[in-house]
Amino acid sequence: MIRVSRVYHDYSGKGQYAVADISFTVEPGKIFGFLGPSGAGKSTVQNLMTGLLPLQQGEIYYEDTPVQALPSQFFNQVGVSFEQPNVFPTLTGYENLRYYAALFALPTIEPMRLLERVGLRDAAHKKAAEYSKGMRQRLTLARALINRPRYLFLDEPTSGLDPATAAEIRELIREQAQNGAAIFLTTHHMELADSLCDTVAFLFEGRIAAMDTPENLKRLYGKRQVHVVYAEQGEERTRTFALEERHALAAFLEQVEPIKIHSQEASLEAIFLRVTGKGLTL
């Protein structure tokens, strides 16, 4: 379990907080998602958690060890993929993974198997410099998984991927959670957060605006809508009501000949807009 509590970070040292009052926990076997637009502070939080950034204020604990006191050996259990794919450009994808595999004290996954999983089998022996951004992104994901990490950090793992590959990657991430990893994931794709995360935090301007399971968020903030499809003068028409407007809905149903009625959940994107007043793509 990773416990983050009341964390603030100020890059400038002038009291301008990039992130403020951040508290949450990431549990083993669960995926915790940070959803927010670009610049919200998602990568800052990840870097504070992995120890890349110094912790200025607040606490971050891995079980009972504060992040500042983690020894090098601890990182045998950690996997991190970065927002900017950072790989050796002059090594092939396969060689990049071999390099990393050599760093770990525990048995690692065979590089070719991982490359297969992230769809880089055919490009395994090409230099990473020739990869597209999406391919490098997948290579850093494979690299993050090579040591079967107990703590996994994924910064925008599906950005720049086509939908089919993104679905594969999603499956791969889900498997990691099933194997017991505690996963911290950042994204600005609400579908990803919705379909993958056990808990989602909306990060907006450096603060957590809302945090809950995707279902609860939808229940709490999303207006469920009811669509009534009815016939009028031989034509099919649709009228939409909010679930709260049930009297109006009842009255309407008295007046028309309904063909079908269906309800629809609000998307996380719509909820994000409601909670923060801004959309995910600024």
């Binding site: 120890g51 890349l52 090098s72 050996q73 970065f82 900017q84 950072n86 790989v87 990393y100």
Partner: peptide, 15 residues
């Protein structure tokens, strides 16, 4: 080269 391509950041949080 490790600094320029950012790999050093990954190595820093490796064992």
């Amino acid at each position: 080269a490790e600094k320029e391509c950012g790999v050093i950041r990954a190595l820093r949080i490796s064992p």
